[in-house]
């Protein structure tokens, strides 16, 4: 018995463990590679609907709720939603760019929401690179100052980064900076298309040389550091314990600001809408969700066969569907996803 085995069983048995709430697509930065579809229209969920949703998720024994965006703090009722989630006993994560999390807001986050983790966005080791990607001057210096303040307040902070051709040569320095700041850093080696299928962000994808260097860096680093993810990777999970390629629609869901329920943040195939059905109804009765789960089963076998020929590689059926219209057909073969970071969660012996 272990946490990992519990997660694997949740994955296999379709036990919803984690829900990501995209509260808004508003943002105070303007990242050049942002994947959000800013033009998406709809009727935003109201506070009362979030309350009903969180009640249901708690009753369904969901462990983790992630408040995301856009910039979630720009939602006018961010603190109310965060407090409701805290009061229902979720492990709370906040995915913010960190730009607004200066002393007063950071203190309110700690006192009113009490998150397990605040995740911020670090896109370079220097102001020139970070600010070039966020397209907001001063954002690097503001972020570094805010991280210091959050750490001083006792908040647990982690940085996320997307590898691009503009920051691919600063990876080593970014990890050094994160270590200096006393926080973990997780690097996603893929730039994603926008959620509406617009491929223009891919113009910032890392170069082949950058990917190669990054893989070598990750490999060397993983040999020196223990790494642990709260969700076991496909490669790590014992073969007998899993029947799916990923937890999309099996152990996790995402919900956009307009109530569209999605298998995961990268798989933008709506399985229903909270204006029309409850989360429990969708979880138990959505035919689209059943189809998504079937796809993750078939993809698992396809990837296993392909990996035996080409070696390990990252494959996301949601991303494939966005790029090619077919969840079985990748638009590009990405480097093996290597989430190398300091341990965030450890199991008690």
């Amino acid at each position: 018995m272990s946490f990992r085995s519990s997660v694997e069983r949740a994955w296999r048995d379709n036990h919803l463990l984690s829900v990501l709430l995209e509260l808004t697509y508003r943002c105070n930065l303007d990242c050049a590679f942002c994947y959000n579809d800013m033009a998406l229209k709809g009727r935003p969920l109201r506070l009362e609907q979030y309350e009903v949703l969180l009640d249901e998720l708690a009753a369904m024994n969901v462990l983790t709720v992630i408040l995301s965006g856009g910039e979630p703090l720009s939602h006018p009722q961010f603190f109310e939603i965060g407090k409701m989630a805290r009061d229902r006993g979720f492990v709370l994560r906040i995915k913010s760019n960190g730009h607004a999390l200066s002393s007063e807001l950071a203190r309110r986050v700690r006192d009113e929401i009490d998150p397990f983790l605040v995740e911020v966005s670090l896109h370079g080791a220097t102001a020139a690179t970070h600010d070039r990607l966020t397209r907001v001057g001063g954002s690097f210096n503001q972020l570094i100052a805010n991280i210091g303040e959050m750490r001083a307040l006792g908040l647990r902070v982690k940085a996320n980064s997307t590898l691009t051709r503009w920051n691919e040569n600063e990876l080593q320095e970014m990890f050094a900076l994160a270590a200096t700041l006393g926080i973990a850093l997780q690097v996603d080696p893929e730039v994603k298309p926008r959620d509406n299928g617009d491929l223009s962000p891919l113009s910032l994808a890392p170069t082949a040389e950058g990917v190669s260097k990054t893989n070598a860096f990750f490999k060397a680093r993983s040999e020196r550091l223990e790494h642990f993810s709260t969700v076991p990777s496909h490669a790590d999970a014992p073969v007998d314990s899993r029947d799916k390629h990923c937890g999309a629609g099996a152990s996790n869901l995402a919900i956009d600001p307009y109530g569209n329920v999605l298998p995961c943040v990268q798989w933008r195939r709506p399985i229903g809408n909270l204006h029309e059905a409850s989360i429990r109804e969708l979880w138990n009765g959505s035919q689209t969700l059943a189809a998504v789960r079937d796809i993750t089963v078939s993809v698992r076998n396809e990837v296993a066969q392909k990996a035996s020929v080409t070696g390990a590689f990252a494959f996301c059926p949601g991303l494939a569907e966005l790029q090619t219209g077919n969840p079985h057909v990748p638009g590009s073969i990405a480097p093996q996803k290597a989430h190398v970071h300091l341990p965030l969660l450890r199991e008690a012996s």
Partner: peptide, 18 residues
């Protein structure tokens, strides 16, 4: 409760107990 087991997350120690 996850399935027939329990998961406890200790916020301060970032530790999970099954």
């Amino acid at each position: 409760v996850v399935g027939d087991e329990g998961v406890v997350v200790r916020l301060d120690g970032a530790e999970v107990v099954a």
